[in-house]
Amino acid sequence: MSRGCFGLRMEKNDRMFLVMLAFFAILCMSRFYDHALYFHPASFPVLQSYSMVVLVTTAYYVVLFMFYAVCVGKVLGVNKKLMYYLVVFCSVFTFPMFLQANYFGTMDVYACFFTLMGVCLVILERGEWIVSLLGFVSACICPMFVFSGGCLLIVFLFYKGCKKEKKKYGCIGLLLGVAEAMGFLISYFRGSLSMDVQVTVSLRNFVLMVILMSPYLLMAVTCFKCFFRDVPRKMKIAYMMILVGGIPSVAMYALRGDFARTVFYVFAYYVVVLLTLMAMRDEKAEIGLLILKGEILRWVPIPAVVVVYPFLFMTLWISGAHELIVETVLGQ
């Protein structure tokens, strides 16, 4: 075992895991990358150039790996295995999403990049003040970040504040809120507040997809319900904030009809929440996941299926117009 920088404990298995994950990511790129850049509303034209998009997508992958390394390095031995599965599950959504033609080069990739950086800083408890700056830049580039990554960062700062009982986190949270609002307003006055909506999945497809994904709702309930047992009121509020933090982005994209993004944000938000809580060694998250693991082992004959099942749909199915479920069920 080696104790690397920022107090991360990287074991031999962790390094091997990350190497395999990197190999898998490269293959995902070759499988899902469409070599096509469509038009997406951007605050600055340079953000839409092909080279810039390739660069920032690469940077997104790098930061994603940094986030995974932080999560894996922060958990203790007994929870490593759980963390591996969570990381792989998160990758099912995060690896292919921004490679598919409809979402390659969207401003979301910038927002995700900054959000993951912010989450890493919050977990490592280093330079947390920078989070507000990241929030400001994100909101300027992708105003809708305020409803997705912005919420995630704010709820985690709130959670930290409740857990550590330090005013510092309250101040950073407040500053982040102000920074996001400023970024949002700047975008508004610059006239770049148009929402990027990709209607690739119809409502009928979405309903069928929700049905097919419904077992995960059951799993989420199994995992999250123990968060509210035997905890002080303050922490109950913190957990409640974390749970409702995913609603704005999901509701926003669902109402505008971008159901592919809706599915992505539902899963990405709550899986990142679990990863972050595990990395912060939150007892309730550990217990919740252990209970969930027990239930999965009890009911699912091949437990790995739970992790790989959504991979069937990402992203070709949720985005590929010619392979939609409705064509199968109702004909073309």
């Binding site: 298995n13 091997m16 895991f17 395999m20 994950l21 898998f24 293959l27 995902c28 499988r31 295995k81 591996y84 599965y85 792989v88 099912v92 091949i302 790995a304 299926v305 992790v307 790989v308 991979f311 069937l312």
Partner: peptide, 14 residues
């Protein structure tokens, strides 16, 4: 070799 086995099923889907 748990780290390997997680990927063996996932990898096949590619």
């Amino acid at each position: 070799h748990m780290t390997l086995s997680i990927f063996l099923i996932m990898y096949a889907f590619l």
